[in-house]
Design a protein around this nucleic acid. Structure first.
Lengths: 349, 349
DNA sequence: AACTTTCAGGAAAACGATTGCCTTGACGCT
DNA sequence: AGCGTCAAGGCAATCGTTTTCCTGAAAGTT
């Protein structure tokens, strides 16, 4: 024990933790002795005494996937800076596992819990009257008193539309995922509210295959469009391929915007894909910071939506298309509701 | 405290842990009282006494990425079954962070540590004379005494070649990543040793763009090939596109095998891509099991290579190509060294 | 010079479980 | 009846810290 370097254990503790009054000389002596012996405080003993473990649990409700990772990294980053360690729990969408993990985390006396996961809708709270604060990241809790941090997907869709408008596009089509999927709905609604779409929203799957198919449908339907806003990057890539194979040039004839800014997709796409980034890492970081605040006695409540970011690439390269009908090049996008009456869906739909 | 249900804390402890002698009736009474009160043992207090924390640390040396996730899941799975919790540490390829995490993990008295990460080569041991067992997963340690679990990439390449041979292909080209990359070397060498390649190995990047380019090179070089074995799935997808745009049909004219079996790539590829799966989840699980064994006093040493698995899909659909020159349809692949003298690289290379 | 204040550092009681040892009472044996 | 044996369960030490309170000694006050 480091106390062998001159003082009692009590004093050594104070020295290392900056408590109590003592000569600077003594404090230094203890510290030197400590790292000479490679002394590391026993976290178990400490937490037994203090009640704090400097530990948080992170439960991913569905399996750790593409979306969870940036969240994990962001949260781990913010927590690591606060000297906290993270317990990783993968509940695989299984409520039994979830509750099992919850119990072990509570047994380990974590200071707080972050719940993440991909869902089409908000989820039920993981537990009621828990003795530790909980923050939901990416997913939100149905209890409005719970603290959730989610991406502002409507904001993302608006940014995408504005970017298309700014680069001179006016006839925007929208191809996205399943209609019952919350994200698809929100994004489509926000896009339509920002600018009247050139065609009814095409709902399908979150896949490249659907993107290719949808491109074909747009072309076959005789739609007049100079841009396609896609529900995610995979769809966008599929649309890009479909258009290219039909002889349309991206971005000259049609501009393309994806959603997710998934490096694998946006870089491999030809041309490289402009996309909306939900800043998942930032969401993870924010969630962790809110959790830290809650642990320190300043709990936050309700849902926080974080803005998205548009990352422009070649698929929306500007300068090709002249503004039509004298509309201002960087004119303010309208914010009114879409004039549904003007829509003219083609027969084939 | 559960002792309020009739007995002393000592007895309660024995009851819940199945120690000591006592009437079954008493034991039951304690257990009922415990979960009536929602009693969970305080892990800190327990570990302070027993010296075990039932906790392991998992350090990813590079940032958590596509390869780490299955490893994480596999390890977490095996450990969770053993009632152990996992501390996640993302060292981001920064030796300082790595050592910092190592210290905190040791302070938390983890029972063991798993080190994972993607590297081109084996890595230096994370620490010397550590008080807890360490297992390296996916990556290997330069110290032969350390325990590492890695994929048998040569095995994977051999399986791919055999599959191509089994489906009637004989003129196999190989397109892969950077020559200095260990995986590229190993896979290429194993493939070449299994069957004489139709052309010198094409080294490049791990990208689709390189795959497309390489397809063009093969065609322009006048190489006679009926199959391409690719260093990873992205390259394979690029090759598929390149071939398709040049009018070659996959799999009729050319069969294609990828490496990694990355769902996003193999499914989106046209046609869907046959690929070699390294079973990363299995590697994570094995590593965790070896760690558990080491914790229980049966440490393993040295490097374990786990076999790969070939997942056939449309890109190697058989039945199109008749065996040439009377070679047996399912003939034994030769295992001798390639006859380098027979190679005739075209001028353009 | 006697008294108060201040400061450095020690002693010991927690924290919550585990566990070896001990006590108690019931029972059986002679 | 007295003694030994054994099972059931209580007692208390222990793990390694933190933290409160306390003791001396040195310094300052009048």
């Amino acid at each position: 024990m480091a106390a062998l370097a001159g003082v009692s254990t009590g004093t050594a503790s104070k020295a290392l933790n900056g408590r109590g009054a003592m000569r600077p000389e003594t404090r230094l002596r203890v510290q030197q002795a400590a790292d000479q012996l490679g002394f590391v405080v026993n976290a178990a003993a400490r937490s037994l005494q203090t009640g704090r473990t400097y530990t948080v649990g992170m439960i991913t409700t569905d399996t750790i996937g593409r979306f969870s990772i940036p969240l994990l990294i962001g949260a781990e980053d913010a927590l690591g800076a606060g000297q906290m360690s993270v317990f990783l729990c993968d509940a695989r969408d299984d409520p039994i596992r979830e509750q099992y993990y919850l119990r072990t985390l509570l047994g380990r006396k974590v200071d707080g819990i972050i719940v993440t996961g991909r869902r089409t809708q908000a989820r039920a709270p993981i537990g009621a009257d828990l003795p530790v604060p909980v923050v939901y990241a990416f997913i939100s809790s149905t209890d409005p008193q719970d603290c959730s941090v989610v991406p502002d997907e409507a904001d993302g869709a608006r940014r995408a539309v504005r970017h298309l408008l700014d680069t001179g596009r006016r006839r925007i089509a929208h191809v996205t995922g399943p209609e019952h999927h919350h994200s698809a709905q929100v994004r489509a609604a926000a896009a339509a509210a920002e600018w009247e779409l050139a065609a009814p929203v095409l709902y399908g799957e979150w896949t490249e295959a659907w993107g290719r198919q949808a491109a074909g449908m747009l072309l076959a339907g005789g739609i007049d469009f100079d841009a396609v806003l896609c529900g995610n990057d995979q769809i966008a890539r599929g649309v890009a391929e479909g258009l290219r194979e039909a002889g349309r040039d991206v971005p000259r004839d049609v501009a393309l915007v994806g959603f997710d800014n998934w490096d694998v997709m946006v870089d491999a796409c030809r041309p490289s894909l402009t996309s909306v980034d939900m800043d998942l890492e930032g969401i993870g970081r924010t969630a962790a910071e809110l959790l830290l605040a809650a642990i320190n006695g300043a709990p936050a409540h309700g849902q926080r939506a974080r803005p998205c970011r548009l990352v422009p690439r070649e698929s929306t390269a500007a300068g090709f298309v002249a503004p039509r009908n004298g509309e201002p090049r960087n004119g303010e996008p309208r914010n009114s509701e879409p004039r549904n009456g003007e829509r003219q869906p083609p027969e084939t739909w």
